[in-house]
Amino acid sequence: MLARSAHGLYWIGRYLKRVEHTSRLMELQMNALVDCTWDQIHFGWLRLFRHLKTAPHNEELVNWEEHGDSWGLTDSFALADELSFVMENESSILSCFTMGRENARQMRHCISSEMWICLNKAYFEIRDLSIEDIWTKDPMQFYANRVQDVNTFMGVCAATLYRDERWEFLQIGRLIEHAQLMLALMSFQNKSTDSVEFEDLEHYDWWSLLHCFQADEAYQHYFGAKIHPEHVMNMLVADQLLPNSIDFSLNQIADRLSALGEAPANRHGAMANRFIGRLVALVRFEWPDAENKTRMLTLAESLALKLHEHIAAAWFNYEVDDSVRF
């Protein structure tokens, strides 16, 4: 298929996974606003913005540290707006939905009409909304609906998309985005556990993460009701059976790359396979015995970024030189 179309599908997968991921954590945060302490609320916002590698556009909110302040309940309206509807923020739900749809619009001939209708319908449902529209009604339901939109879209993909490269690139995009976001999230969570700033945090935040990524029932089954941060971390990072774990995503990526076979730019294709091999080995075999988990997560984050770059260079933006197949 056309390299640009494959690139577009890859990014549809990435953008929609980001919508789902952000929506899940926003739903969690909206729940926290109801009955959590100020430091838990502050931690929730900080976790969201830091791991998404973004910052609010509002200057007062950006410089909270300088003022010796924190993000509390009163800032939540603006912060929620930032991650939901602010188009200038590349991680906001509306921005990611728009970009995902724009990619789909440019390659409607590569996707099924049912996929397009599903995505379009979901987009038009939120396009004209603002934070005011959802804030006083049921913000949690709004975010839950966005998760459902993405899940429905992925279900329609699974039911209607031809299982050739189109499917593979869409899935690779989705899985890489998931792996990168989860690595960043786990990295932040792990650093915070060790920091003085959040030493008073209870286990709420670990438990909420398990719930957020549908790991709570499996956790209770294996470890009981008591929260052990290291068990939660191990589960979300290295559990081979949990669909939202990092290990699970990495292994899926390895399978997809293997299904694609040789890349047009051999060197980058080989590098992509090497990086996914390293990532899989790191998470599966080195993680359990690693003493410095933070270092390992940082290393995995940088490897995942390299993996993305090599995939792009191997299949999408390859230079025409001797290594390219005619």
């Binding site: 298929m1 056309l2 390299a3 640009r4 179309s5 494959a6 390659m107 001939h109 490269e165 690139f169 694609l260 890349a263 047009p264 299949w315 390859y318 025409v320 390219v324 197949r325 005619f326």
Partner: peptide, 24 residues
């Protein structure tokens, strides 16, 4: 047919190629 833009095509040795995921 593939819907291509100019940047998807290139000319080499007098022939036109498109960049695909399987090569040119």
């Amino acid at each position: 047919a593939e819907l291509v833009e100019g940047r998807d095509l290139l000319v080499n040795d007098g022939f036109v190629y498109m960049r695909t995921t399987s090569g040119l």
